[in-house]
Nucleic acid binder design. Structure first.
Length: 653
RNA sequence: GCCUGGGUAGCUCAGUUGGCAGAGCAGCGCACUCGUAAUGCGCAGGUCAGCGGUUCAAAUCCGCUCCCAGGCUCCA
C-alpha cells in the first residue's frame, strides 16, 4: 500500500499497516511522540488500519491537535475514575476546551462534588494511568448503542440526537462498508464511553494532568434542563509543559485588576453600595481623569461636540426608543415618582442624544453631527455575572452618536474605525481583530433590507483594513448590526473594546429629520460608538495589560523622592518643586523609616521613578535614579537633565 | 437565577473534638537618621457577614438571609 506524507514524499508499506506503522517507518522519535494520525484529513487512532492509498500525517504530542487528543483522552480517564468512586453516576459529555477539558456528571442521590474530591479523583485517575488500559474502538448500530448505554440517559440522548440528524457525526464509509453509526471506546471491560475519538493508544500514555475546579453546568447549557456537576481539568504531554501552563495561569491571577486595584489603592466595591458598583479612590480617580482628558482632547480634534444628559428619564422615552420592549431585562426596575409617572435609570445614552438632535430643526449642513458624552448608564446584570470592573451595574461609556446622511455613513464609519485604532494605540494596545455581529434572530426591529444594507456597509468598511475579521452571527443590538474591535493584551488574552453600531431604526422611531439641499425632509441615519466600551472596563484591561505598572503618563504618582537623612530634606523639597513645576506628579517620603523600607514601599506602588538624594547629591546637584523595571539604580544623574526627560515622558501622547 | 467554594482586626490568613479570639503586615506612640525591596520596642484594633435555633457553653453544629469568587459559551 502507498502512503502520501505531508512533505510530499511517498512510503510503501505492507497491506494492513496502521498509523503507528507509518510513524515507525518514518522514525523512532516520531513514533515515540505520536498520539494519533490524520488520514485523508480525518483524525484517527494510531492503531487504525489504513486504506490502500491515503494521505497520512502523524499527530505528535506537542502540537495543539496532539494536546487536544491527550486532554480528551484524559477526560475519559476522569469519567472512569468518577464512575469507580461514585458507582451509579451518570456521565454526560467530556469535551476539550481552550487550555483543557471538562466532564459533566450526575451523581447518585443528588450528590455534589466538593473541592476536596478533586484530589481523590486525581488519585484514582493515576491508578487508571498506571494500569495502562488500552483505548479500544468499536462500532455499533444505533440500537446496539442505545442498549449499551441503557443506564445512561445522557448518552442515549446524544445517540438519539445523532440518529435524528440533529447533530453532525463523523460518518465514515470506507471500502463500501455500512456507515458507522455509533462508536464507543472502552479502556477496561468495566468502562465504555460513547465517543468519536480519536484517543491515545492507552492510558499509560497520559499522566500529566491536573483537575482545576468543580462547577455546576446545565445539560446542554439549557437552564431548564438538569444541572450537572462539572469538573474542569487540563493535561499536557509532559510535567514541564503542565507546570508552565499552571504558571501562566498564576501570572494571569497576579495581573487580576481586582487584586491590583486594592493593592494600588485605585478603587473598591463597598458592600454598602451594592453589587457591581465601584468607587474610585484618589489614585484610581486620577488615572480615570487622565484617560478621560486625553479622550476629550482627541474627540475635540476629531470634530465631536460635547453634551451632557441626565441619568434617568420617564418611561415614555424608553417606550419610544424600544428599550422597554427589547432591553427591559437589562434595566433596573422603575421608580414610581407619583401615581402616573414612572422613571427609569438609563441603560444607554442614545435616546437622550436623539432628543438633542431633535431640539430644533436640522439642516444637511450640520451633518455629520457628532455628539459625545461620558455618559453613565445603569444595567441590571444578573448577580452571577458581575465581575470586578469588567462587568458592572453602573458604568460610564465614552459614548457618541453620529447623525448623518446615508451618503455620508460609509466614510464616517471608516474614519471612526481609524480613530479607534489610533486612540487605543496611544494606550499601548496595538494588536487587534474585528468582529462583525449580525441581526439577533427574533430580537430585532427593522426591515430585512435595512439590516442587509447596514451589515454589508459594516462588512465593507471592516474589510478595507488589513485586520482579521470574524463573524458573530446574531450578536448585534436590537436596532442594528455592529463591529467590535477586540484587542490582544500583553499575555495574549483578547478583550472586546470598542463597538460601532449602525442604526436605521431609532431615527424612524423618534421621527428624526433634517432638511436637505433639495429643501425636502430626509431621515438621518445614526451611528452609535464607544471606544473604551466603558471607562471602568478599559481601566481594568489596562491594569491587566500592564500588570499594574501603568505607563508613566498614566501613573498616579510618577516620581517619589527619598532623602537619605532628614538633613537632606531641603534638597529633596527643591527637587520635588522642580519636578512639579515641570508638570510631573512628584512627592517626597521623609526619612522616618530606613531607606530600604521606603524604596520597597515605592516599588510596591509601582512608581515609575524613585529618586534617592543624599550627601553626594546635595554637594553635586545630582540624583540617584531607581527606574521601575531595572534593579540597578543609577547614581550621580544631573537634576536638570532628569527633569527635562521625565517631563517629556510624563505628558504622554 | 442555579452549582461549587468562601466571608474571623484595614489587608493576608490560623483557629483541633463546641470550652477565655490569634499571627504577620498595615495604623498609632517612642526610640533609631539610615545610599536603593521590610529598624527595634510598645499600644490599639473584633457584632467571628447578619438573623434565628440546638446546647451549661457556638467562630465552630443546624436553618434562613446577605455579600464575594469560580463556573453555568466550547458538545460523543
Amino acid at each position: 500500500m502507498e502512503v502520501y506524507l505531508p512533505d510530499g514524499s511517498t512510503k510503501s508499506l505492507p497491506a494492513g499497516s496502521t498509523g503507528r506503522d507509518v510513524a515507525v517507518a518514518i522514525g523512532r522519535r516520531l513514533a515515540r511522540d505520536a498520539v494519533a494520525v490524520r488520514v485523508d484529513g480525518k483524525e484517527m487512532d494510531l492503531d487504525t488500519t489504513l486504506p490502500r492509498e491515503a494521505h497520512v500525517g502523524v499527530i505528535t504530542e506537542t502540537t495543539e491537535e496532539g494536546r487536544e487528543i491527550i486532554r480528551h483522552s484524559t477526560a475519559h480517564v476522569l469519567a472512569q475514575a468518577v464512575l469507580r468512586l461514585w458507582p451509579g453516576a451518570r456521565y454526560a459529555i467530556g469535551p476539550v476546551i481552550e487550555g483543557g477539558f471538562y466532564y459533566d456528571f450526575e451523581l447518585p442521590n443528588g450528590a455534589h462534588f466538593s473541592d476536596d474530591d478533586l484530589e481523590r479523583i486525581e488519585e484514582e485517575m493515576r491508578a487508571i494511568v498506571a494500569e495502562d488500559q488500552p483505548f479500544v474502538r468499536s462500532e455499533h448500530s444505533f440500537e446496539d448503542g442505545l442498549a449499551i448505554f441503557s443506564e445512561q440517559p445522557f448518552k442515549r440522548e446524544i445517540i438519539e440526537a445523532v440518529r435524528e440528524g440533529v447533530r453532525e457525526i463523523d460518518v465514515r464509509d470506507e471500502e463500501g462498508t455500512a456507515p458507522v453509526q455509533v462508536s464507543t471506546y472502552w479502556n477496561s471491560p468495566a468502562f465504555t464511553d460513547l465517543c468519536r475519538g480519536p484517543h491515545v493508544p492507552s492510558t499509560g500514555r497520559l499522566g500529566h494532568f491536573k483537575l482545576t475546579r468543580v462547577a455546576g453546568a446545565y445539560w446542554r447549557g439549557d437552564e431548564k434542563r438538569e444541572q450537572l456537576q462539572r469538573i474542569y481539568g487540563t493535561a499536557f504531554e509532559s510535567e514541564k509543559a503542565l507546570r508552565e501552563h499552571l504558571e501562566r495561569i498564576e501570572e494571569a491571577e497576579r495581573r487580576d485588576h481586582r487584586k491590583l486595584g486594592a493593592q494600588l489603592d485605585l478603587f473598591s466595591f463597598p458592600d454598602e453600595i451594592g453589587s457591581g458598583l465601584a468607587v474610585f479612590h484618589p489614585k484610581g480617580g486620577l488615572i480615570r481623569m487622565l484617560i478621560e482628558d486625553y479622550s476629550r482632547k482627541r474627540h475635540m480634534e476629531a470634530a465631536y461636540e460635547f453634551v451632557n444628559t441626565p441619568h434617568l428619564a420617564k418611561e415614555e422615552l424608553f417606550r419610544t426608543s424600544g428599550h422597554l420592549e427589547w432591553f427591559a431585562e437589562g434595566m433596573f426596575p422603575p421608580m414610581e415618582v407619583d401615581e402616573a409617572q414612572r422613571y427609569y435609570l438609563k441603560p444607554m445614552n442614545c435616546p437622550f442624544h436623539i432628543l438633542i438632535f431633535k431640539s430644533h430643526q436640522r439642516s444637511y449642513r450640520e451633518l455629520p453631527l457628532r455628539l459625545f458624552e461620558f455618559g453613565t448608564v445603569y444595567r441590571y446584570e444578573k448577580s452571577g455575572v458581575v465581575h470586578g470592573l469588567t462587568r458592572v451595574r453602573g458604568m460610564t461609556q465614552d459614548d457618541a452618536h453620529i447623525f448623518c446622511s446615508r451618503e455620508q455613513m460609509r466614510e464616517e464609519l471608516d474614519s471612526i474605525l481609524g480613530f479607534i485604532l489610533s486612540l487605543l494605540g496611544d494606550f499601548g494596545l496595538n494588536e487587534f481583530f474585528l468582529e462583525l455581529s449580525t441581526r439577533p434572530e427574533g430580537k430585532a426591529v427593522g426591515s430585512d433590507e435595512d439590516w442587509e444594507e447596514a451589515t454589508e456597509t459594516l462588512r465593507g468598511v471592516a474589510g478595507e483594513r488589513s485586520i482579521d475579521l470574524v463573524m458573530d452571527e446574531g450578536g448585534g443590538a436590537f436596532y442594528g448590526p455592529k463591529i467590535s474591535v477586540q484587542a490582544r493584551d500583553a499575555i495574549g488574552r483578547t478583550h472586546q473594546m470598542s463597538t460601532i453600531q449602525l442604526d436605521f431604526q431609532e431615527p424612524v422611531r423618534f421621527g428624526m429629520e433634517y432638511v436637505g439641499a433639495d429643501n425636502a425632509r430626509h431621515r438621518p441615519i445614526m451611528i452609535h460608538r464607544a471606544l473604551f466600551g466603558s471607562i471602568e472596563r478599559f481601566i481594568a484591561i489596562l491594569i491587566e495589560h500592564y500588570a499594574g505598572a501603568m505607563p508613566v503618563w498614566l501613573s498616579p504618582e510618577q516620581v517619589r523622592v527619598l532623602p537619605v537623612r532628614d538633613d537632606h530634606d531641603g534638597y529633596c523639597d527643591e527637587v520635588v518643586a522642580l519636578l512639579k513645576h515641570a508638570g510631573v506628579r512628584a512627592s517626597a517620603d521623609r526619612a522616618e523609616e530606613p531607606l530600604g523600607a521606603r524604596v520597597r514601599k515605592a516599588k510596591l506602588m509601582k512608581i515609575p521613578y524613585i529618586l534617592v538624594v543624599g550627601d553626594d547629591d546635595v554637594n553635586d546637584g545630582t540624583l540617584g535614579v531607581n527606574r521601575r523595571g531595572s534593579d540597578r539604580p543609577e547614581r550621580g544623574v544631573a537634576v536638570a537633565g532628569f527633569v527635562e526627560s521625565v517631563a517629556k515622558e510624563a505628558h504622554g501622547p
